[in-house]
Design a protein around this nucleic acid. Structure first.
Lengths: 358, 358
DNA sequence: GCTAAATCTGAAAACGATTTCATAAAATCG
DNA sequence: CGATTTTATGAAATCGTTTTCAGATTTAGC
């Protein structure tokens, strides 16, 4: 007993006020208090007000564990994003969170670090904790994860893509069409010698689709990218730099570089400057995502703007409806926007590579 | 009943396997299964293995609501960050998450959007959900939040600062000393005409401390910043730009600009270039945080590097220990690092403002 | 003004785990 | 080898809600 009282010193100070306490205080049954909290409309107004006053007085908050145990609902949804470091996800997540909290839901965020195993693990965590719905990013998710979704029946939606495998609904843009469009734009400016910098990885189907779009548009124009004209990179500035350097080493006559990410494009642009190539006169460069920085760099970057906030809101609405058992769309395709800024122009062969005359 | 079976169509597919199911299957009591899960060492090895096999077979996962209700522990900790858009927080959060998952904890992330009301609200959410510990950012948190911490006794730690109000323990760097050091560095280069760009807001004591450091170091050198030499901004690139413009309008002879954030510094730098001022010849600029971009811009930015990963790990360790009732340090002060790159140099008055001869 | 229907409220049974307490089996000892 | 301690297991109480079911009260109908 002595031991216990010592331990108490650092334990929860207050003994926690329970529904029973406010019931006693308000002279009603616990059932009534519960009803005031969950179905206010079915309890007589005066009584309801009285109970509410006592709830406030004792500053009672229901124990969510008990509540979740009994009701099976957690009023919580989870989002698993590949990384927190990217502005584009941050914007979507913040919109998601705002919309959810309007509906009384709380958002928990986990990150997978672009790793499918981690993603699965976080998913299991979330499900074990009784999450009501889950937001994923991208369409490639491994068989186990899809099985888990299937088995547990938790509503799931994936974002930033227009379709996903395994019957998981999606909300996002058509990545392939977007890069097709940006490529066609460059073609229309007169470019014929292209390079691509893409951050391809097994778990990143967005970049994969973007690269496909580039290649498809070029193919339609009768141009085929050779393997050395497609440089792989992760999503850092430094990789953008080295990718550009490598590309120009192998193909010094390149006039247009299409990147699957703004970060890569910005890295490439600063490397181009360092190499003495002016953008866009000597080299046109494009990005994807339209992060804040892209409009601020010099020259401002031509890129694709993604409706991240709408994606977040749409995902929230989808899950709220799905949880409530209301009908939901199978997938939602949102429009992207090609933002033409100053990092692209017609190729001017006269000015090519001033310091490599050959 | 008919209704119910229709509803079941879209509900959880499997009826959920309970502890009782695996108990029956393994010919033991539920109590034993529970012990295998929670105190494996007290059950006979062969029996334990048998039970574990059946657990795996049925792929049983304990219902965390029931578990939390009975045991009062959730094995979950929460972090409330001001924004997800900043790389510096992302790095810390990822380290936090990694360390926590090593110890069987799950991290839930919420964001307050630099808003104390939102922070309080998220905190209440977390606590209602029975979170075991909370990580905050910065030291200024409003009376209500501190009262909540006091009242519930949830272990809390705040990060990125060296001390916080209200007895909340902290892990981080001495922001004031860091800017004092960077200011002294500029003084030692010979600068005498300073400007400061700071993202001050009521909830951001980090920037406040950083600004204090600047002013203190200057005061010690006998220099006093006038109000118009201190420009307020939020944390965007665009604001960094306009802040610099305003500063140079009022004080065209400024030679050194100290920013409380890398983002502001990079914005300021690109505005300086646009105005025809070369950095560092005409103007020295410094940042704070050392984000990835800072080493990649031209010229690379002189700044303060924060041990974000260590902060994250330290916060995790603190909470794990505190929850287990082990002794914990009151506060942890971590070293920052002054990273001298090329955005700073001695002032050269000869080259001042070439296009404003006057 | 009395009966029938509608509306509220309370008592008690879940929800699925953990843990105390008691008991059965095994190990230890003289 | 019997008595005693130790160890391992099971039965049942419990955590704090929600919700069903039935009873009590009010309202409506004629």
């Amino acid at each position: 007993m002595d031991k216990r009282s010592i331990a108490d010193t650092r334990g929860r100070s207050q003994p926690r006020v329970k529904i029973e306490d406010v019931a006693r205080e308000a002279n009603v049954s616990p059932a009534t208090v519960s009803r005031v909290l969950n179905h206010p409309e079915i309890v007589r107004p005066e009584l309801r007000d009285k109970v509410m006053r006592h709830i406030a007085n004792l500053s009672y908050t229901p124990d969510s564990a008990a509540r979740a145990l009994k009701s099976g609902r957690m009023r919580t949804i989870g989002a698993i994003v590949p990384t927190l470091a990217l502005g584009i996800f941050a914007e979507g997540v913040e919109a998601l969170q705002n919309r959810l909290s309007e509906s009384g839901y709380t958002l928990f965020i986990a990150n997978s670090q672009y790793n499918q195993r981690r993603e699965l693990q976080e998913m299991q965590n979330l499900i074990e904790r009784g999450i009501d719905g889950i937001v994923l990013v991208g369409g490639s998710h491994g068989r186990e994860l899809r099985a888990l979704v299937e088995q547990t029946g938790v509503p799931v939606i994936t974002t930033y893509v227009s379709k996903a495998g395994g019957g998981i609904p999606a909300i996002g843009i058509d990545n392939e069409r977007a890069t097709r469009e940006i490529t066609e734009f460059l073609l229309s400016l007169g470019h014929v010698r292209f390079g691509a910098i893409a951050n391809i990885s097994p778990s990143n189907d967005r970049s994969r689709a973007r690269l496909d779009g580039i290649q498809r548009a070029l193919a339609e124009a009768g141009i085929r990218l050779q393997p050395t004209q497609v440089i792989r990179a992760d999503y850092s500035l430094a990789q953008g730099r080295s990718a550009l350097r490598q590309l120009l080493t192998d193909h010094p006559d390149t006039t247009a570089v299409i990147c699957t990410t703004d970060t890569l494009a910005i890295g490439a642009m600063s490397e181009a400057r360092k190499m003495g190539l002016s953008v866009p006169q000597a080299l046109s460069i494009t990005g994807f995502d339209d992060v804040e920085l892209s409009s601020q760099v010099d020259p401002p970057l031509t890129t694709i703007s993604i409706p991240a906030a709408e994606i977040g809101r749409g995902a929230a609405d989808y899950l709220i409806n799905a949880i409530a058992g209301r009908p939901v769309p199978k997938s939602v395709l949102l429009p992207y926007r090609l933002v033409m800024r100053s990092s692209t122009d017609s190729p001017r062969t006269a000015k090519r590579l001033p310091r490599r005359p050959r």
